[in-house]
Design a protein around this nucleic acid. Structure first.
Lengths: 211, 211
DNA sequence: GCTTAAGCGGACCCTCGGTCCGTATAGTCG
DNA sequence: CGACTATACGGACCGAGGGTCCGCTTAAGC
């Protein structure tokens, strides 16, 4: 295959851009306020470099999001107990949702930016499909559970970035309270026995986790 | 109060603009493709008239949405059986969600436009607060139901325009199938007895309803 | 060191939301 | 019915921001 490895300065610049974008988005409170020119300036590169490396604004945000999400994804596909594949379905579904919620709380602005940058809504973005497939697959393994496809969509909708932002930011709902509410809600959807405690999921990298 | 009634031509133009916007949004498949200039041209007025009458793009879409939603709102606040206030909580909650889903299906592009036009996410828009307050209030009357505030948010998230659009449009899920799935999901959240049939809610105006 | 192609960057372009102000007219009063 | 004025019209204009282009720079192989 024609995979050519990029020049050293290109790689360095790519990192600088991602880092600058992350910082800018995290600091301004409306992600739309961060312009491509801002990012280029903050990273110390020209606009051309941004667009050559990422295609367009959506591509840049997407790449950044993907990079930050990677640890969580890893924890889900091959990680240890609560998130990993060995966990029994009910508990794992709750852990997945909790981890996703924590991630969105920890990367509030970035997640928000991703949703509003998505040219055609979050749906159709690769990472959404992945979450949906994963969650849906887990639900399917719950004995007697039906409609797992729609249920997965609906549960994921409950942790959408703008809703999370609205509740945590505008309405000052604390992290713990939010997690508890979500667990309560999800538990009801999954049916079966009430959980005997907090789910405690979430990966440590990037600050995600109970905090 | 200084409520002056508008000049006749102003009122006529206002209607023309709403009508043109509705038509354009419904026909193009990405609402963002419809520009303010397009709408002005289609309505046979100048851009100035648009902005004078509605403030900005968000205001225009909002006004249009509000106008189309009015019948549903009416049916909820003072209408007859399934949607009206006299209905027992569980059934009414299901009817509300079903009506909202039907509305979003019937006004897919408009709802989509509203969500992506909202300067700061759907949350914080007046109509969302109204739906949330209403649904949350209904849930509260369910005996033994807890966390109705969050549950209302989560349930409303399940019928967000872009998700509905994704399922109905991109994934070709039929109207009836979608309604059944939602009813199933919501039923699980509400707990209690399984419903004995379709909820059948939705107002007739504007084409909303079982179809 | 020399060559070369990968990479750089910022001037430039275009679209689109939003503004402004000179002109036209609906509504009113004598 | 004609004059007067507040209201509204509309399109030229503006600024911002995403995205492009091309002459210059420089890393990397020989």
């Amino acid at each position: 295959m024609p995979e050519r490895k990029p020049r050293a300065d290109a790689a360095r610049n790519r990192e600088a851009v991602l880092e600058a974008a992350d910082r800018l988005i995290a600091n301004r409170d409306r992600p739309a306020q961060v312009t491509m020119a801002d990012i280029a300036a903050a990273a110390g590169v020209g606009k051309g470099t941004l667009f050559r490396g990422f295609g367009d604004r959506t591509g840049l945000i997407h790449a950044l999001f993907e990079a930050r999400l990677e640890p969580v994804r890893q924890a889900v596909t091959e990680g240890p107990h609560p998130l990993g594949p060995a966990t029994p379905p009910r508990e794992r579904a709750l852990a997945l949702l909790d981890a996703l919620l924590c991630f969105k709380l920890d990367h509030r602005h970035l997640s928000l930016a991703l949703e509003e940058a998505a040219s055609d809504s979050p749906y159709g973005a690769a990472h959404y499909d992945w979450w949906h497939a994963t969650l849906s697959g887990v639900l399917e393994r719950l004995p007697g559970f039906t409609g797992s496809d729609f249920a997965a969509h609906a549960l994921l909708a409950a942790v959408r970035a703008d809703l999370v932002d609205h509740l945590a930011g505008r309405q000052q709902l604390s992290r713990e309270r939010l997690r508890a509410q979500l667990a309560d809600f999800a538990g009801r959807v999954l049916g079966g026995p009430a959980p005997d405690g907090a789910t405690g999921g979430a990966v440590s990298a990037g600050g995600a986790g109970p905090h």
